[in-house]
Nucleic acid binder design. Structure first.
Lengths: 132, 132
DNA sequence: CATTTATTCAACCAAATGGTTGACAATTGA
DNA sequence: TCAATTGTCAACCATTTGGTTGAATAAATG
């Protein structure tokens, strides 16, 4: 079973379960930022934002270096690769389901064509819209 | 910005942040299971396990159908695809870092070779093992 | 029909989480 | 040197989470 280091996955997925932290990661994907810069867009105290950054740091998703009184944060993406690896195992399942869905829709189309040919049954007026 | 439906990502990543729930998903990847079967490997009450299944269900990762008094659960992977899509944006960053790491190691090797040639400095005995 | 099985529910509890506030430390700038 | 800035820390609070227990419900079985 794909069981990557569990505490790491615990922490990474937990860090990602909060929209504020995901937004912070996104901002760090464009450039390094100070703690205050990361905190700025959020309607919360600096201490609150600092806590979120600590969570990201603890999960290994952010690293920081201090210049004077300024803490510069940077994205550290390696642990996201671990999360991606974990998810990769399930790729076959959402691919399968998409294939299954296609098969089901095709079978339904054939069934409707058959009943229309025999005229034995009224075909339902509303049928799945496959155009989308 | 890749901002997929946030509440969905909240719920999905939160569901995945617990090792028990990840293990349950893995068991469902081999076949459908009853609630009791899912609960069995864990040292917790049936009600506790039932709560975890509810979290997975609320996140859209599991669906169930009831046969008599038995609740049959199945994996529902589509939302994992959304999580994967979110992570895909960061792929460039862990790829970059791996490239950066290689560059750094190569630069170090060159520097060591230069100093050995000039004999001006003792080269350190221990250096990064690049064989791995 | 009584008993058993499968599972959820409500109530409870401890721990964790997310946020605030005020104090404090380190550094910068005037 | 002092005020301002950057940021963390501790204490606090409300909410959420994860788990248990006993009761309740629905369905299957004898």
């Amino acid at each position: 079973m794909v069981e990557y280091s569990t505490p790491t996955l615990d922490a990474v997925f937990h860090a990602l379960s909060d929209p504020t932290r995901r937004a912070m990661l996104h901002r760090l994907s464009t450039s390094e930022r100070t703690v205050s810069e990361l905190a700025t867009p959020f309607n919360m105290s600096l201490a609150g934002a600092s806590k979120h950054i600590k969570v990201l740091e603890a999960a290994g998703l952010v690293r920081r270096h201090v210049q004077g009184r300024t803490h510069i944060c940077a994205l550290q993406a390696a642990r996201l690769a671990e999360a991606q690896e974990w998810l990769r195992y399930y790729e076959q399942f959402w691919q399968e389901r998409l294939d299954d869905l296609e098969d089901i829709l095709r079978a339904e189309d054939r069934a409707l064509a058959e009943t229309a040919k025999h005229g034995a049954r009224k075909t339902p007026k509303s049928k799945p819209d496959t155009k989308e």
